[in-house]
Amino acid sequence: MTYKMLVSDLDETFLNDDGTIHEENVQTVKKAAAQGFKFVPNTGRSFESVQKMLKQLDLYDQVGQFVISFNGSAIVENKDNQIIATQDMPLTMAKQIFKAGLINEAVDVHIYTIDKLFIYNVSDSDRQYLATRGVAYVELKTPDLSFLNRQQPIMKVIFEHSDMQVRHQIYDAVIDSVGIDQVEATYSSDRYVEFNLKGVDKGTASLLLGEKLGIKRDEIMAIGDNNNDLKMIKAAGLGISVANGITAVKEMADIVTTRTNNEGAIAEVLNQFVLIGE
């Protein structure tokens, strides 16, 4: 099988734990892209936050190269950051999720619009984590969301807390409020519980991009490590877990790399399936 596209999670998959890129990953992505291969970051983050990374990979402002952002809520061509597809969340739903998920004063909440990230009650650990990733945001001083009337469309709402039990409680509170049939709920980075509009996920967006590019499902590889990567890995022709992936991801994947994210797992995949013999 000739693979034409790799959709890749970033944190704990493509990136090292400190937010840097393993040099082997940089070089293999450059080689593959030079041959017309599509390396597509498929991330929960904004496309705005990955521009520095794209520059390192020679993918910045490039025609025919793409980023999938916000867990599948937006597909963007790198050239001029042209948005080619969005699946946004109704404002009333975003407000309802925000209110329901703030179950205690230690929870912080992110609201992503197409071009901005707003955070209420940002925790010290979250602040440090975002700094290592170069993520810019606007800090909200109050829970008043009336300003969002001028900031749409809304891509997703997520909550941060270090305790998994608290994240489960947030999940339950939001689902009780809006209904399981209204949202896609996932966990990521051992700190976030994320909410997108129902039907929006990394896998659906990967197949949609493939369809727009004339790339078949069997020609798409997907690699990830965490809960919000499961549908992407299931959707792809070849689903891959990094060695440090959670158990559910390893069980879903067709193969598991021998390398972790800190050891250049993406380089391993590209050398095995794309840069064969080089």
Rank of each mutant, 00 (worst) to 15 (best):
I175T: 11
D190E: 15
R191P: 00
D163Q: 13
D163L: 03
D176C: 12
S177Q: 14
Q165W: 02
Q165T: 12
R167P: 04
K198M: 08
T204S: 15
N196V: 05
H161Y: 06
M155A: 11
D176A: 14
S162Q: 13
T204V: 15
N196F: 03
Y192T: 04
T204I: 14
Y187C: 06
I170L: 01
I180G: 11
D181C: 10
I180D: 13
Q182K: 15
T204G: 10
D172V: 10
Y192K: 04
K202D: 00
Y192L: 09
D190R: 13
D172T: 12
F195N: 01
V200Q: 02
T186G: 05
K198W: 06
A185I: 14
I170T: 06
Q182C: 10
S177R: 12
V200N: 04
D181Q: 12
D181R: 09
E184G: 00
V193W: 01
E184N: 09
D201W: 06
T186D: 00
E194L: 00
K198A: 10
K198D: 08
Q182Y: 06
A205S: 03
E194S: 04
M164N: 13
T186H: 04
L197S: 06
M155Y: 03
Y187Q: 10
M155D: 03
F159E: 00
K156P: 05
R191D: 02
D201F: 01
T186Y: 02
T186C: 06
T186I: 10
R167L: 11
V193N: 01
E184S: 08
R167C: 08
V183I: 09
Q169D: 14
F159M: 09
V166P: 04
G199Y: 08
E184L: 07
I170F: 06
D201P: 02
D201H: 08
E184W: 00
E184K: 05
D172L: 08
E160T: 14
D163M: 07
V193C: 02
G199H: 05
A205Q: 07
G199V: 07
A205N: 05
Y187T: 13
A205T: 02
F195T: 01
V174S: 06
Q182M: 12
V166D: 07
V200A: 01
T204D: 08
E160C: 12
S162R: 13
V183S: 01
I170D: 05
L197Y: 10
G203K: 07
K202A: 07
G203P: 07
H168W: 07
D176L: 09
Y187R: 11
